[in-house]
Nucleic acid binder design. Structure first.
Lengths: 131, 131
DNA sequence: TCTTAGATTTAGAATTAATCTAATTAAAAC
DNA sequence: GTTTTAATTAGATTAATTCTAAATCTAAGA
């Protein structure tokens, strides 16, 4: 059903590559649209969008919150273990499990996450004093 | 430091391919060894093992708890979206990001997760009445 | 073997993301 | 406009994980 709240969430996520948490979405919308949505509705809407395949939910090791990605085309993620920044990567190949390794599973989706340090945090590590 | 509690956790994880949660580890040890360890120590020990590279922590979309895998050699995971079962898969190739796509990241680890239905849950879906 | 300093364990409290509940409000069908 | 159904919401609830501070162990040196 079309509601202002759902439109707000949809609009906020459209072309958003920051992989926000539910609370970040809530905070951003609340600031911009002056309180048109509650946190519960953000969760409800994300759950709905997920069911419809409009958003991917990302659970990432070492990050405490679920993150949401409106880009549902195949891609991997680079995650900074220091600042938590997440960026998209389009891999120039597809990763598929050979049939004989599937152990009877019917595979329907996949996540590929790479962990490391982003450029900014690499610098910080080299020059801690520069902070 | 060598303690009975840490040994318990280590032994429980050795060759364990069930990807248990912290609580599952705690429950299993408590039952077998009759209370030699507290839940806090299980968490402490897992955190230590993680730091030492003896265990991998898995955050998996749709599963609410972190899971632990003592198999730290490169491999992917198949995850059943219905019952939550996780099994290891050794891929016959390595997945690496081309240098020009790394966006300055220093990559140190990776997770590859495939989501779908395990054989048992595929059957359940076909024959719901057979339940 | 005894002592002791430092590390480990622990119960229970605290934190907090996410879910649930039940009442209010809004949407859309007619 | 009325009615029916779905959506929103504040606040309570749940539960994984972390924190705290006190008690207990470990291991190495005397």
């Amino acid at each position: 059903m079309k509601t202002p709240q759902r439109n707000s969430v949809l609009n906020y996520l459209k072309n958003n590559t920051s992989h926000p948490t539910a609370r970040e979405i809530y905070d951003a919308i609340s600031k911009k649209d002056d309180g048109v949505v509650s946190l519960a509705t953000v969760y409800n809407t994300l759950s709905l969008m997920k069911k419809k395949g409009l958003v991917r939910e990302l659970a990432i090791t070492d990050l405490d919150y679920k993150r949401y990605d409106p880009n549902v085309s195949p891609h991997a993620h680079l995650i900074c273990g220091d600042c938590g920044k997440i960026v998209d990567v389009r891999l120039p190949f597809t990763v598929e499990i050979p049939e004989e390794q599937k152990q009877g599973f019917d595979i329907r989706a996949g996540d590929i996450h790479f962990y490391g340090l982003c450029p900014a945090c690499r610098n910080k590590e080299k020059n801690p004093a520069a902070q």
